[in-house]
Computed example of a mutant assay.
Amino acid sequence: MTGTTAGTSAPAGPLARPASPAAVARDDRPGGAGTRRAFFLVMLAAASAVFLYPFVWLVVASLKPRDRTFADPFLPWPRPFAPQSYVDVWHAAPMTAWLVNTVVVGFMAALTVTVSSAFVAFGFAYFRFPGRGVLFGSVLATMMLPAAVTLVPTYLIWNAVGLTGTQVPLWAGNVFGSAFYIFLLRQFFLGIPRYVFEAARVDGASYLDLFWRIALPLARPALIIAFVFELKASWFDLMKPLIYLQDPQLFTLPRGLKAIVDQFYQGGDPKWEIVLAAGVITTLPLIAIFFVGQRYFVQGIATTGQRG
């Protein structure tokens, strides 16, 4: 019997296979991919220039003499070049003490909120109990509460325990965690396979062992994100130091910058080149920290929130 069965057709040869949609698109638009890539690169460069311009202006203006501080705002280099303000700022204010205070307060704030938030987030991610969703939603609802609402009660609490005028209120509140970081870390913990924890439980690990020996090492990128976010928030925070600190030797850098501006205006001689130099000194450490932890930072952003 020759031929093929009715209703069927002979298999087509390899040359008869239809081209994939991607291949068809490449044939129809040979330069499409390159054009799109160039367009996105141009848009990325334009957006980067917009975001970088304020910092570039800050650096350039801080390197100009006083009478030329606000001249030529679009010139990408100082004219004339006058770096003397970076020497004068150390004589105009105790910048070393303020820098040390900022590092200590920022590190303590970031460390406490990262550990405490991770502890709570692990509980929400691992344990199954009635009302877990409602309780977690209540935690997230606290993010809707404006900070100004709790400003006075919080001050009264710290004043009652005698800690106003010290640096403790600037970071000790983070011992109770943060709703944003709890949410972020919980999402990351949910991405860890549950059988990893169950196998450890079979081997006799306690719940605390699951947290310290398994969850935290695997969640390193998310922990670094929480740490860097809170360090940045504490580093540039002005409200708390403005409320709780009166001794200039305890000032952080933002509070110190405010004091410098007030001092110059009261004297009738606003030395903006010194203020701008102090602003550059305040900003550079955070830029360095970001570049050091950039790999973990991007990895954590990419992997957080894959599971809900």
Rank of each mutant, 00 (worst) to 15 (best):
S48M: 12
P14K: 04
F188P: 00
A172L: 15
F189D: 05
T102H: 10
M95L: 15
L44K: 06
Y126R: 10
Y86M: 03
K64W: 09
D27H: 11
N174D: 02
A278S: 13
L135H: 07
Q306P: 00
E230N: 14
V56N: 06
E198V: 07
P217D: 05
I260G: 00
V113G: 01
R79E: 12
M143D: 01
G191H: 13
T282C: 04
F290P: 00
D209C: 04
L257P: 01
V275W: 07
Q266E: 08
T5W: 11
W77T: 02
G31N: 14
M239E: 08
T142E: 04
P254E: 04
V202L: 14
R68Y: 06
A278W: 08
A47K: 05
V175T: 10
D269M: 10
G204Y: 10
G3C: 06
A215N: 06
R213H: 10
V24W: 09
A259C: 03
A19Y: 03
W90A: 12
R132P: 10
L210M: 09
A226T: 15
L151W: 14
L245Y: 11
T69K: 03
I214F: 14
Y265K: 13
S234C: 10
K64R: 15
R37M: 08
F264P: 00
T283Q: 07
Y207F: 09
Y207R: 09
Y207N: 11
T102V: 07
S206F: 09
L151S: 06
S85W: 09
P21T: 10
S20H: 14
E230D: 06
S20Y: 12
I289G: 01
K258N: 07
F188V: 02
P83E: 09
A6N: 13
L156A: 11
A33M: 08
P241R: 08
A278Q: 06
F51Q: 07
W235N: 05
T69R: 05
P169I: 08
A199S: 12
V24F: 05
A118I: 09
P169A: 07
T4N: 07
F129N: 07
K271N: 08
S206Q: 11
L99V: 03
G305I: 13
A148Y: 15
A49D: 05
G34I: 10
I243M: 12
G293F: 15
R307S: 08
A19C: 02
A118L: 06
G137V: 12
L286Y: 04
L238D: 03
V175H: 04
D72P: 01
Y86P: 00
A278K: 06
I289A: 10
W158H: 07
V89D: 01
T102D: 03
T150I: 13
D203Y: 10
V139A: 02
K240L: 14
F40D: 02
P270C: 02
L151G: 00
L216Q: 08
